[in-house]
Simulated assay, not measured.
Amino acid sequence: MGHGGSVIEELTSDHQEVAALFAQLDNHAGADPQRRELADRLTMELVRHAVAEEQHLYPAVRRFVDDGDDLADKEIADHSEVERLLKDLEGCQPDDERFDRLIAQLKSMVMAHVADEENRLFPLLAEACSAEALNELGEKVRRAKETAPTRPHPAAPDTPPLNKLLAPGTGMVDRVRDMFTGRGKQR
């Protein structure tokens, strides 16, 4: 979850972790209970990642990148759709006929979003910001992920200042729920 380096290095490492979780899901079939555990871990990573981007990356894109408002709005819209899919997935078990369909939709959407960020947004941000600014953003993103929610909350605010105010409290409630249920624990 926390890798170090610039915001681009941090988020690219998150992208690689998510791709690895999708690959692990692909390696398990049918009603294998490990698929539910992997889906929970995937959800936790995606939600924390999205919250951190919404709190810190997209405001920086709006500020420093030409046409940054349009770029940030598109990325936030992608997050909203992913979060809706994650919420639907949250209620599914691996033997549910919707599980595989939701995972496939989620994978397609997330990987397209990742490609867009890595091929378009990150290069624009790297061109517009100093290495020091990118490193500071990386640290802010890492801190945000530590307190971010771990469950999808599609109705939660996705732009500052409200997302920065509400996410830590929601994250604390989610982590307490996760602790009591054992959700997200690797066996």
Rank of each mutant, 00 (worst) to 15 (best):
A131K: 12
L38G: 04
L166T: 12
G171Q: 06
L137M: 15
V51E: 01
V65T: 03
L86R: 05
I76M: 03
T181I: 14
P157K: 01
Q34E: 15
S108A: 13
R35I: 10
L106C: 06
L102D: 09
A126S: 13
G184V: 12
Y58T: 02
G182C: 11
V61S: 04
A115Q: 09
R177G: 11
A155Y: 02
R41N: 14
T43N: 04
P160M: 10
E132M: 11
L165S: 00
T147A: 07
L162M: 12
I103R: 04
G138I: 04
D70Y: 00
T170R: 11
D174L: 07
D174K: 02
R63G: 03
R101A: 15
P149L: 08
M44G: 10
G171V: 09
F99C: 12
P154G: 11
A72S: 10
L89F: 12
K87G: 02
A72R: 01
L21W: 02
L134R: 06
T147I: 10
P94L: 12
G91N: 14
R101W: 12
P94G: 09
D95N: 15
A148H: 02
H153M: 06
E90G: 00
A128C: 11
A112T: 05
H49A: 07
A104E: 15
L11G: 00
L85Y: 06
Q34Y: 08
E37H: 13
D67I: 02
F122N: 04
C129I: 08
T150N: 03
A128G: 11
L137Q: 08
V114Q: 08
E139K: 10
D96W: 04
T181K: 14
T43S: 13
F122T: 03
S108W: 00
L11I: 13
E136Q: 15
D178W: 08
S130P: 07
R36H: 14
L46D: 01
G4S: 13
D73V: 03
V61P: 04
E45R: 06
L89N: 07
M109A: 13
T12D: 08
R35D: 10
P33M: 12
R177V: 15
E118I: 07
F22K: 04
G5I: 10
H153K: 05
A156P: 05
L38Y: 02
P160V: 11
V61E: 03
G91H: 14
R187V: 10
V141Q: 08
E53H: 02
P157M: 05
P123H: 06
T181S: 15
V47N: 02
C92R: 15
D40G: 04
G171P: 09
L106T: 02
R41F: 03
S13H: 13
I76V: 14
E132Y: 08
T147F: 00
D69A: 01
A156T: 05
L42H: 07
R175N: 07
K74C: 02
L71Y: 03
N135T: 13
L11S: 04
A19S: 13
P33E: 14
L89S: 13
P149H: 05
A131W: 00
Q186H: 12
E117C: 01
N163F: 05
A50P: 06
F99V: 13
D174M: 06
G91Y: 09
A112E: 04
L57N: 03
L166K: 07
V51C: 05
L134H: 06
K87Q: 15
G182F: 06
E53G: 01
S13R: 13
L125Y: 07
R35W: 10
D100W: 07
H153P: 05
Q34F: 09
